[in-house]
Design a protein around this nucleic acid. Structure first.
Lengths: 146, 146
DNA sequence: GCTTCTATTGCAAGAGATGGCAATAGCAAC
DNA sequence: GTTGCTATTGCCATCTCTTGCAATAGAAGC
């Protein structure tokens, strides 16, 4: 099992949580995923491995993994849940409302956001939970022209 | 009917859309609201005026009003829909994941965000659709201390 | 007022997400 | 291996939001 999943079972046990086949399924699917996954995708892929998969169990497993810091969740532009896997979990997203393009928020912009809020309010932004909606460069240009 | 609702009926008609009792109900409720409203609240208040209110009609009316630019919708921290009413519709939100406190993003921070993305990607941020999640000043302090 | 066109409604069905609760099954201890 | 505690599961109910479709009812023209 690739990092950061190799020690999950022990992490669970150390916290008095149990290692179940259902959780193993979810974690195997996550280990085979990269970047972002929507809940629907996750459930779908879990069902490929185990057709008996129950959605609420998947959601609860994800909650548990989030408590362990192994995944983070955020909400996409339509408000539906998305999960980020792995150590590069700390990033937000840009979403173009016109063409649907998605990209990650880069360090420079991220810093601008975090710093602006920290300075003004002392508010500590949770970047992984940020989805910024708007219009990407090409759509903005097309819109301005046409 | 207070601004910006006084001319809604005409705006509807000019676009070939119809003025119906159901829409009137929704608009009256919106006119009596300020700031943010969740869909659930709206439906609830519409039912107080007209117990026959059907949720899907409310949602479709809100879509129509958004097309007219009279309301804007965004997604709260939990991904559920929220509507902003009136001319000050263009603002984002801060949400504290610890204590649940909500506040509006002020002009200074808003500028920092908009400018950062415009400079870096040419991305035009739709502020009204931004909800930033994190930890408010007092919760951050409490967390750092305890 | 009556007719006609068609935007809207009401309803039913469905997907996504979440919580309660009884039954199940990890796993630690013997 | 067996026992006991209780974290989890599976299922059901609920809530939010969306879509399709037949029936309804605005509103413009006569």
């Amino acid at each position: 099992m690739p990092e950061p999943w190799s020690g999950v079972r022990e992490q669970f046990r150390q916290r008095g949580m149990r290692w179940t086949p259902q959780r193993r399924t979810v974690i195997e699917v996550l280990a085979g995923s990269s970047g972002h996954v929507t809940s629907a995708e996750l459930i779908e892929r879990c069902r490929e491995r185990d057709p008996q998969t129950i959605p609420s169990t998947v959601y609860r497993t994800l909650d548990a993994l989030e408590a362990l810091g192994l995944v983070r969740h955020g909400h996409g532009a339509d408000g539906r849940e998305e999960f980020h896997v792995g150590p590069d979990a700390e990033h937000g997203h840009l979403y173009c409302g016109d063409c649907g393009a998605r990209s990650e928020i880069r360090a420079a912009e991220a810093d601008a956001i975090v710093t602006a809020f920290r300075a003004a309010d002392g508010f500590e932004v949770d970047l992984s939970h940020v989805t910024v909606v708007g219009r990407c460069a090409s759509c903005a240009a097309r819109h301005a022209a046409g």
